[in-house]
Structures are given as C-alpha cells and as structure tokens.
C-alpha cells in the first residue's frame, strides 16, 4: 500500500501548477525515498524531473515501489478542490487501478475524498548524467519570471550570455531588441534576493522563451531559481523545495535543449 500525508497541502497544488501546462500525463514513481516524476513534453524539447522527498511528509508509507500513471490535467482539477490550508493525503493500493486524494481542513471539520482512475503508462525514463556545468546562476525566481515575460514581447528566443561580470538576457524580433543585464550581487545580506554567478567558463546559449515561461510556473515553490548552463548541453532550471528551516523537501528541475545557431 502507498499512503503519504502532506500537512502543507498547498505544496502539492503548486507542484501540479508547475507541470500541468507542460505535461499531459506522467507516472509518479513512489518508493521509500519519496515521490518522483520524470517526463518529456509532447514535442520532446523539454524534460521535467521532480522529487518530493519522503521526509517532507508527515506520514509516508510505501510497502513496495509503485508507479502511478496519472492524467495530470485530471489530477490538477481534483487538487483545485483542495483549499490552500488543507492537509492532503494520497493513497493507492499496491495493485490499484485508482488513486485516492483526501483533503482535510485544519480544524478537521471538513474532510473530502476524491478517487481518480490510474493510467497504464510505459515508464520510459531518460538518463540524466550528473553534469559539472560551466555556469550556474542563482537569482530570485520572481526576477527570472519577469525577464522571461518581458523579453517575450520582443521575440521567441532569449540569448543568455554568462560571464564573470554577470549575466545578460537578450531578445530580438520585428519590434526591435532588448537586453537585461544582471550584475553579481555585491553584499549578499538577503540570500534570496541575491544574484550569484558561479562561472568556470563563459557560456552563451539560445533558448525558447515559450518553454522558459512554462518553467517559471514553478516560481511559487521557491524564492530562488538556479540556471545551469554548459555549451551544447540542455539548460537546467531548478526550483528547490525547502521547508521553513531550509531543509530540502525536494525539487522541480526542468531541462531545455538549446536552439541551434544558424
């Protein structure tokens, strides 16, 4: 049997919002370590890899590893029936063909449960090698969302140029062109507001803004986002999921293949 109880139910609601526009269906791979999900978007341009660690749940029981095939649009609709301050419990029997979601109000005076059919999905997974990236940019997640939104008015691609001085985002199109330069933060008193560039070597790559704007749907999960880049490998955009003490409860990682320069 699989059963996981999440006191901060809003976290699962935010995770669903961060993937439902990019993925149609995916399998939650549940094991003793936690709940993982990995899937490509339908055009195989982007890959999502997320994890909710077992110790982020108040109760977590996984008698044996189980893969739950889910239609994400349906799961998202059901999670919209949960209030932000509800406790959410996910349950599935080992040989289940359905998954149950239970939403409890904080005062336990309102309990609702929803059962959803599971799908048989072939769980093909891509091997994502550990990569020493040439550049890792840490910045406020709201700032990254704004840059992707603003530059989208100019064109469908963004050139991200990372040097030791900082990072520049550029876009051009029929309307004109635009550049946004972020300097490294000098004094890092408030970490979540800092821009930190860890550069081994300078990198310049071009990416689709359409996909980056899908990724920024994860911004409510974390005040910070990290962009990891190396020449000729996909960009990794990571939103870490930490608890109030800053301990890791998981992450949402997006991988995006670069555009190929003419």
């Amino acid at each position: 049997m699989f059963e996981a109880r999440l006191v901060e139910g809003s976290l699962l609601k935010k995770v669903m919002e961060s993937i439902k526009d990019l993925l149609n269906e995916a399998s939650w791979d549940c094991s003793g370590n936690g709940m993982c999900l990995q899937a490509m978007d339908s055009s195989h341009v982007a890959l999502v890899s997320l994890m909710l660690k077992s110790d982020g749940f108040e109760n977590y029981r996984c008698d044996r590893s189980i893969s739950l095939g889910i239609n994400l649009a349906s799961m998202s609709k059901i999670l919209k029936c949960a209030s932000n301050d509800d406790i959410i419990t996910i349950r599935a029997e080992d040989d289940a063909d359905a998954i149950t979601f239970m939403f409890e109000s904080p005062k336990q005076d309102r309990v609702s449960d929803y059962e959803m059919k599971l799908m048989n999905l072939d769980t093909e997974h891509l091997g994502i090698p550990d990569t020493e990236y040439a550049c890792v940019i840490k910045m406020p997640s709201g700032e990254f969302s704004r840059i992707c939104r603003d530059l989208s008015v100019l064109g469908d691609s963004v050139i991200i140029c990372c040097t030791k001085d900082g990072v520049r985002f550029s876009a051009k199109g029929d309307l004109g062109n635009g550049n946004i330069k972020l300097a490294q933060s000098a004094n890092v008193d408030k970490e979540e507001e800092a821009v930190v560039v860890d550069m081994r070597e300078a990198v310049t790559l071009t990416f689709s803004l359409r996909y980056l704007n899908f990724f920024t749907k994860a911004a409510p999960l974390s005040s910070q986002v990290s962009l990891s880049m190396s020449e000729d490998v996909p960009l990794m955009v990571e939103y870490k999921i930490n608890d109030k003490e800053g301990d890791s409860k998981g992450y949402v990682r997006y991988y995006l293949a670069p555009k190929i320069e003419d």
Binding site: V45, E124, G127, K259
Partner: peptide, 14 residues
C-alpha cells in the same frame, strides 16, 4: 527562427 534541438538528442533512454 533558430531550429530547436530535442532533449532526447542529449539524454538517452534508460
């Protein structure tokens, strides 16, 4: 518009 690469050109199926 620059042509877009696919992610599974970089990461192989397990």
């Amino acid at each position: 518009m620059d042509p877009q690469a696919a992610i599974d050109e970089y990461y192989i199926l397990n």
